[in-house]
Nucleic acid binder design. Structure first.
Length: 939
RNA sequence: GCUGAAGUGGUGGAAUUGGUAGACACGUUGGACUUAAAAUCCAAUGAACAUUAGUUCGUGCGGGUUCAAGUCCCGCCUUCAGUACCA
């Protein structure tokens, strides 16, 4: 029997499925290990060879951990709500649930072919009502919570109500909206229930707020910042405008400091932690209020340099700032309005693109400097962003380059408050080298002391205090879409009410069309049965709405990140026990969190931040036991496509082979990569038959063949460089695919796919097979292993184990090749060597390993066989082939015993004829001998 | 601009603590087997020079440290990814 991979792979995939080989146990004496892939969205296009890269890596690790005696949880499921299925529904009218089902079936079929050791019994789908019941449940918990900064914890809203009733809100240290009115306990107790609810909504961890959002008219939806690329929607490329809307928001900003600090405790790459740090954007400084002259208004600013307060020579407000219209003088009104109008017209993109153009207008109004009491002019300028800080800046041109440029441009005074610094050319922003001057009580102080002192003085005046600001904004949680989780919310007099958790899930209603309504309401506005009856606690027809017992339901749905922010906890529970809770306490306690998480870096500031946020929240409320969801995280690099090009002579239907194009006017055209062989030769007939326009084309060959050009690009349909894993499995087998994906290069690095190279790993598997079987006969015997056999085996064990622990899977594939090459050369037939070798290989190439394992007479699966133990004694050498270098250049090698002393090595080397030949009579200045490593002769 | 990652043969890449640069593969060339092809096996393969022995150069560029640098230090260049006027 030859290596018939198709038969073998099918056989073992069926065996694993039938025997539930990879089912994880929730009760086990073994230590637990939880390996997770980032949640896939089942797209209609199916998998290409880039997708399984991370899955293969986690699968190898999961299988390795099983060999090492761990109880491994390695689940898979689908993030199955999402826009593509909805877009397809809009176009075709097909219900997104059906599209999703079909796509999942395709995904599953493709995944199964690759031989993953997933525990499919724990599969989850975010669009399944049994799953989103608990997404809705978590939403309710967020609504019923507030964030207490005194103990840095999310607490039940009842504890806040108790505080309000007892002491009002003056001393409450909570995460809340900026526009909170102060009230006493007496006032609170006299407020109407509606007013109380309105106030509480300003404190809840999920709340309704009027927010300026990115509205996409074409999609009829709001997009998050990370869903917009270059000012247009990421999916579809439609234009996006700013608009105010009432939206559900998540108070993630309350957790900013913990999200930042938590990074210190987890094993993620520095680049990933850095991007989360930047995203959170902590800056420490002070809040300062300036009184507006002749008005009862104040301008609050945030500054990281309160020490430079005497350098303020103007204020800048964002054009959108609320105060602008109130304070502008009659003289300046026209200019200001014109400017505001002009900036509003410019898209965000334009504003971003031209950073260099300085623009702004004087409002005519002044503030009073808190210390000098001098008047300071108030300007507006679009370099100040309404969405950061307070939307206002105290401009210190001598210490900030943007303020400096603005001042220069408008001829505003630039007072110098730094000792011994020249600011005639540019601003001076170096905190460390700062000594303050011309600043009254701050003179002579450094940055640190001046900052401390000025904050004291500001506090004494009641015009400021030390403050920490975060860039992290609260996250908008409403989507104007159909294919997402419905909110468990109905409205009484415009106030949102939670549906009791006993009545969950609230399932998606049917609609006849998946578009927004004609009046601009979300698609759920088209549902006829979408009202909540508080008597029967059911969803009823809209006709019954009377606003006394039957109320309208929320029309928005939740965003994609809702379901993916907690799915890793759902996998911990066995499918049969998922009815009672999102996961049982025992299951959560046993599995704790994800030990290894692998996925793409595109989730750095979206999913990975939200999932950490929800985990912290659930921990505070006592629902889970861990502060962080993912202990170790690795980003896999993208697999790129190797596109093929043919060259058409301009204006003719004639194609020149790659070597003939120099000096010719040719147009490169993508050819489908399947028409090209490993030697870059085009199958001209296949290409001609590809499209009508090429049918009669003329091909100019070189050396009898047509050579294509190659270029590395992103793998995509439009570039005709997509390679489908199904075809690879057909032709070479899943084991070859798995090995080759790993062999391509380091996991975290981007690398091009080139199918031609797969013959290398495929040939390796054939050689491995031949080591065990020849002409159907088992070659393996009980013969004693030779010293060389054992040496090969043990150096392989050592290297492979180190490689897996370091996620260096590419180098272990080479190690296997070397081992098999050596054992073949040694004509090894010893079971004592070949059987452990199979266990080493089985995480990488599980099908062939299972087959040979059973051919050796073993019962059951190889997957839980113990990992071979490395024994140093087989690698002990008695001699070393020393490289002998002269002035650092290796000239020859010399085999010497390892126990030879340095003196004897020197003597032997010096006496050697080749040494004398190299020295040509010179006497070396120095001879360096590093024992067991190298000899270097200097001179 | 900032942050992060990376630059090594024709190609993917290896070199784990500074110690024989190019492991392992692909491709290419030559050979064996075959009517032929495929498959398989053997040999060569960084560049230049040299009949051979061998010599010189060589890890993006320029310096430096060291007996010894792909690896460490300083200064640049290029590519990729993320982010974007953050006060």
């Amino acid at each position: 029997m030859t290596y018939n991979f198709n038969t073998i792979e099918k056989k073992w995939q069926d065996y694993w499925a039938k025997n539930q080989t990879f089912k994880a146990e929730n009760n086990s004496d073994k230590p637990k290990y939880y390996v997770l892939d980032m949640f896939p969205y089942p797209s209609g296009a199916g998998l290409h060879v880039g997708h399984p890269l991370g899955y293969i890596a986690t699968d190898i690790y999961a299988r390795y951990k099983r060999h090492k005696g761990f109880n491994v949880l390695h689940p898979q499921g689908y993030d199955s709500f999402g826009l593509p299925a909805e877009q397809y529904a809009i176009q075709t009218g097909q219900h997104p649930a059906i599209t999703t089902e079909t796509n999942i079936a395709t995904y599953r079929r493709q995944l199964d072919k690759i031989g993953f050791s997933f525990d499919w019994s724990r599969e989850v789908r975010t669009s399944n009502p049994e799953y989103y019941k608990w997404t809705q449940w978590i939403f309710i918990q967020l609504f019923e919570s507030w964030y207490n900064y005194d103990n840095n914890k999310a607490e039940p809203i009842e504890t806040l109500v108790v505080k309000f009733a007892a002491e009002g809100n003056a001393n409450i240290n909570a995460a809340c909206d900026d526009t909170i009115e102060a009230f006493s306990a007496e006032e609170w107790n006299q407020f109407s229930s509606e007013k109380q609810q309105g106030i509480l909504l300003q404190y809840r961890l999920t709340y309704l707020a009027e927010t300026e959002v990115n509205w996409c008219p074409a999609l009829g939806t709001v997009l998050a910042n990370d869903e917009i690329v270059n000012g247009v929607s990421e999916r579809g490329g439609h234009p996006v405008v700013r608009k105010k809307m009432t939206q559900w928001s998540m108070r993630i900003s309350a957790f900013a400091e913990r999200l930042l600090q938590g990074l210190e405790t987890i094993d993620w790459t520095d680049s990933l932690k850095e991007s989360q740090r930047n995203w959170i954007g902590k800056s420490v400084g002070a809040s300062v209020t300036f009184n507006v002259n002749g008005h009862d208004e104040v301008i609050e600013v945030f500054t990281t340099r309160p020490d430079t307060i005497f350098g303020v020579s103007f204020m800048t407000l964002a054009p959108e700032h609320d105060l602008v219209s109130k304070i502008v003088t009659d003289d300046q009104k026209e200019a200001v309005n014109n400017y505001i109008e002009a900036t509003a017209k410019r898209s965000e993109r334009e504003r971003m693109a031209d950073v260099k153009t300085i623009s702004g207008v004087f409002t005519g109004a002044y503030v009073e400097h808190p210390f000098s009491k001098e008047p300071i002019p108030i300007w507006i300028g679009d370099y100040v962003l309404a969405s950061y800080g307070t939307g206002a800046v105290m401009a210190v041109p001598c210490g900030d380059q943007r303020d400096y440029d603005f001042a220069k441009h408008f001829n505003i005074e630039i007072p110098n408050i730094f000792e011994g610094v020249d600011i005639s050319e540019e601003a001076f922003a170096d905190k460390e080298a700062t000594i303050i001057a011309n600043s009254h009580f701050l003179n002579g102080l450094n940055y640190k002391d001046a900052t401390k002192k000025v904050i004291e003085q500001l506090e004494a005046l009641g015009q400021g205090n030390g403050k920490t600001n975060y860039r992290l904004r609260d996250a908008v949680f409403s989507r104007q879409r159909y294919w997402g989780e419905p909110f468990p919310v109905y409205y009484v007099n415009g106030m949102p009410q939670m549906i009791d958790q006993a009545h969950l899930p609230i399932t998606l209603p049917e609609v006849e069309k998946y578009l927004p309504t004609e009046t601009g309401e979300p698609p759920l506005g088209r549902a006829d049965v979408w009202a909540w009856c508080t008597e029967t606690n059911t969803v009823v027809s809209n006709g019954n709405i009377n606003n006394t017992t039957v109320f309208p339901l929320e029309l928005n749905t939740m965003p994609g990140w809702a379901g993916s922010s907690w799915y890793f906890f759902r996998y911990m529970e066995e499918a049969a026990k998922r009815g009672e809770a999102f996961a049982s306490e025992e299951a959560l306690k046993y599995w704790e969190n994800v030990d290894l998480y692998i996925g793409g870096s595109e989730h750095a500031t979206g999913h990975l931040l939200y999932a950490r946020f929800w985990t912290k929240f659930l921990k505070d409320r006592g629902y889970v036991g861990v502060e962080e969801p993912f202990k170790k995280l690795i980003n896999q690099g993208m697999i790129l496509g190797t596109s093929a090009f043919v060259y058409r002579v301009e204006g003719e239907n004639k194609f020149l082979s790659k070597g003939l194009i120099e000096g010719q006017k040719v147009q490169p055209i993508h050819s489908d990569v399947s028409f090209v062989n490993a030697s870059d030769e085009l199958d001209v007939e296949a290409f001609k038959n590809w499209r009508e326009e090429f049918k009669d084309a003329e091909f100019v060959l070189e050396d009898g063949v047509y050579k294509v050009g190659r270029e590395v690009e992103k793998m995509s349909k439009s570039k005709y460089n997509v390679v489908n894993p199904d075809n690879i499995c057909e032709e070479y087998g899943a084991d070859s695919l798995r090995l080759y994906e790993m062999f391509l290069g380091p996991l975290e690095q981007a690398k091009p796919w080139n199918t031609a190279g797969i013959t290398g790993v495929h040939g390796f598997l054939k050689k491995l097979w031949k080591l065990f079987l020849e002409n159907d006969a088992l070659k393996v015997t009980d013969s004693e292993a030779t010293k060389d056999n054992l040496k090969t085996l043990h150096k392989t064990i050592k290297k492979v184990e180190e490689d897996i622990e370091n996620f260096s899977f590419n180098t272990s594939v080479s190690t296997f090749m070397i081992a098999v090459n050596e054992l073949t050369a040694q004509k090894c037939t010893s079971k004592a060597v070949l059987e452990p070798l199979l266990v080493l290989i089985s995480p990488y190439a599980p099908h062939i390993a299972e087959e040979l394992w059973s051919q050796l007479g073993n019962e059951g699966s190889i997957s839980t066989a113990a990992f071979p133990v490395f024994d140093e004694k087989h690698l002990v050498e008695s001699s070393k082939n020393y490289p002998i270098s002269f002035n650092g250049k290796m000239r020859f090698t010399l085999e010497l015993p390892l126990d030879m002393s340095k003196e004897d090595i020197e003597k032997t080397v010096m006496a050697h004829e080749k040494t004398q030949e190299q020295l040509q009579g010179r006497t070396p200045k120095k001879v360096i001998i590093v024992h067991g490593k190298i000899v270097n002769i200097v001179g």
